[in-house]
Amino acid sequence: MVDIPEHLLLRSAEARAKALGITVEQALAEMKGESSPTVVDDEPEVIEVELSAPPKAETPAPAPAAEEVKAETPAPVETPAAEEVKAETPAPAPAKAPAAAKTDTPEEVDFAPEVKVTQRLLTVVKAKPIQKATSEPVDKVNTWPHLMLPEFISLMAMMAFLILLSAILQAPLLEEANPNITPNPAKAPWYFLGLQEALSYWDPQIAGVMIPLVIGLIGFAAIPYIDRNKENNPSKRKYAIMMYTFFLAGAGTLTIIGVLFRGPGWNWTYPWIDGIWFDDLLDWIYFE
């Protein structure tokens, strides 16, 4: 006999003791083969029920899993105790006994299901998981240190650059704001200067509103929904790249013109002849 762990043995013994109405110690002793198995020869309740029930000859036992019946439903009477211990769950003897007994005539009380149960094959379940947990292998590295270290170095470099820039270049501060003195030209921040430049060509409703709102906000946000091309390869999305590059070139050109080539009255000036008419750049130019 294989070695059965003590706690399983005890659990089984408790179940058996409860089923047969004997003490746990006795059940344990029976299981270990130290005393002869208790034989319960009458179970009045069960028999009474059977008497009233019409006998059914061919009914298969309502055993859920055919394989387990043998192990899990031990005959509470005849089966040797040792065999019962094999079942991991406590023997559900009282519950199953009537079911098995239904097939029987009431006179002979035989609860052994091995003899009576007819089994049929419902399905064959192959031994593999239901969910497929396979994923394509991806070449991955640990975030620490392979990502965080370069990040940290980049941040330090950026910080150094910013501090150096701020130490060298003084941010502009002109005279105090005066609504009565209009500078000529009055220029927007550099990132709006392309727009201001466009404003000098087209109707303000188009340049000032339609371009930033319709093209800028809505148009840009809609890019992924307009571009249905699934390719990432640049040679397979030439049109998209061309359009964006056009936009970049256009916006860049307008901005550079607005910043450098526009003087008083928004007239064309050359920065190398007339100087730069953009106060935000003052200290970049007159840098000592």
């Binding site: 502009p172 501060l173 105090e176 209009t182 009055a186 220029k187 000032g208 509103v209």
Partner: peptide
């Protein structure tokens, strides 16, 4: 960036923001 542009309250700030505000006023 644009809202911060006004805060130094110098000529550069007030007129840049005025230009920007005038652009917004062209909204239909």
């Amino acid at each position: 960036s644009f809202t911060g542009y006004l805060l130094p309250w110098d000529q550069l700030a007030i007129w840049a923001v005025t230009v920007g505000g005038n652009m917004a006023s062209y909204t239909p």
